[in-house]
Simulated scan of single mutants.
Amino acid sequence: MEVTQEKSEKQTWRDLPLELLISLMAYLEIEDNVRASYVCKSWYEAAVSVRIIDQPPWLMYFPKPRNCYEFYNPSNCKKHTMELPKSLVGSKVRYSKDGWLLMSNCISSDFVLFNPFTMDLVDLPYLELWYGYQLVGFSCAPTSSNCVVFTIKDYDPGHVTIRTWSPGETTWTSMQIDSQFLDVKHNYLVFSNGMFYCLNLRNHLAVFDPSLRTFNVLDVPPPICPDDVDEESWYEGKFMVGYKGDIFVICSFGNQDPLVFKLDLTRGVWEKKGNLGSLTIFASINSCESRTYVQDGMSRNSIYFPKLCYNETRCVRYLFDEGRYHPREHNINWGKQRSSKNIWIEAPKNFELV
């Protein structure tokens, strides 16, 4: 008994069973994972076993003529062109998630979910499109029964109409709410924590819960416009993204350094962040993606924008570690480039560009 007690007293963290070490390492961000791997051989083995490299999203864009689309893989700079189905020629992308696109024809009320990798199409029920919907999106791929397509529009002053659809339904479910939340343009949407987060031009935040069918404007003061940024630029270059339940807003102003804010619901504030840590954000108007373990050659603690440079061999990106854009002079004017031509999309793991 004395020998057993002496051994237990001499045990350290490095003596933890490998299974338990692996469970602990799975919760670490990449920087802490790397630090932990230096402790000892067993910690290295556990850290490396869960250090799974995430495939970055691909950039998808529509060259002229718009009867085709192209993919660009930022990790190896490969490109691939595919032909757009005839029924979608002239349609615009409204939202992207889980490798699917929500698209609508510019002159009709037809919404469709389209997988540009498998060419699968899901037609949605007819929906009257009175001057377009200011905000549309969906929760997950339509192959899941949990998919919810969300649309919101203000038909008359002081009211918004929300319509939702899920796989298997033949009509849209509608509800009207007293609200003046939406703007004519510049509204943003992210699905996270089982809810749709909506951001308007004035940077006010609202949440729609599809399970309870409630829409609430949160009591969270908007981020304050810096003194050295003009108001028009402050409203134009916005991007919103979710990551493991957290909500981030990125504000960009031409060649000036972007600002990043993280939502703190407990305190009811937008917390300004000096960097992204181990996170990498891929930002575009209708789709934003986030990754932690990006491939070698990709920049962590960075924001990748949907713009190709240097003869289309690299994306415009901002490197927080270096405090600069690459390239430094990127000539992006978000006020004039708010189209859906360039978006980030999650590619299937086994899909290869040839």
Rank of each mutant, 00 (worst) to 15 (best):
Y69F: 15
Y38A: 15
K97C: 14
E31W: 04
A141C: 10
Q11E: 14
S104N: 11
W234A: 06
E236D: 14
S174V: 13
Y197T: 08
K78R: 13
I247G: 05
I281Q: 01
P65R: 12
V269N: 07
L28G: 06
S290H: 02
N76D: 15
L18V: 06
L84I: 08
Q180P: 00
N286L: 04
K185I: 03
Q5W: 07
W58I: 02
S75F: 08
L18A: 09
E9R: 13
E169F: 08
Y235C: 02
T280W: 00
R267A: 13
S144G: 02
I345F: 07
D228Y: 09
Y243M: 10
E236L: 12
D178S: 14
V112E: 13
T143K: 05
F150E: 05
P125K: 15
D246L: 14
L319E: 07
G268T: 12
S23R: 12
R324W: 00
P210L: 15
N203H: 07
V241I: 12
I52G: 00
V89D: 02
D183V: 00
T81Q: 14
A347L: 00
G132L: 10
H186G: 01
T266N: 12
S302T: 00
I281K: 04
L121F: 06
V184M: 13
D230R: 10
Y61W: 15
K336S: 13
S139C: 05
L21R: 11
L212V: 07
Y95G: 05
G137F: 09
M175P: 01
Q55P: 01
Y72S: 12
V260Q: 03
L101R: 12
G335M: 09
K238I: 14
P222D: 01
G274P: 00
V190R: 11
P17Y: 13
V249I: 15
L21N: 04
R35N: 11
K272Y: 04
L189T: 09
G99F: 11
V260W: 01
I332H: 10
R35M: 07
E352L: 08
K341N: 14
W165Q: 06
S108M: 09
A47T: 03
S144K: 12
F117S: 04
L20A: 10
I247F: 11
S108E: 08
R317Y: 10
D32W: 14
R267Q: 13
K64L: 09
F71H: 06
F117D: 02
N350H: 14
F305W: 09
D321C: 00
D246I: 02
I332Y: 12
F351N: 01
V89A: 03
L182M: 10
V148S: 00
L88G: 01
N33R: 14
E346L: 08
R35T: 05
V190N: 11
Y243Q: 06
W165Y: 09
N342I: 00
E271C: 08
V249L: 15
S252W: 08
Q11S: 09
L129E: 09
R163C: 08
L18S: 08
R267M: 06
N333W: 08
K349P: 01
K307D: 02
L308K: 11
S23I: 06
M103K: 05
Q176V: 15
D296P: 01
M25R: 11
V316T: 07
Y293Q: 05
S87A: 13
N350R: 14
S23K: 14
D321G: 02
T214P: 04
V122H: 09
D296I: 03
N200H: 12
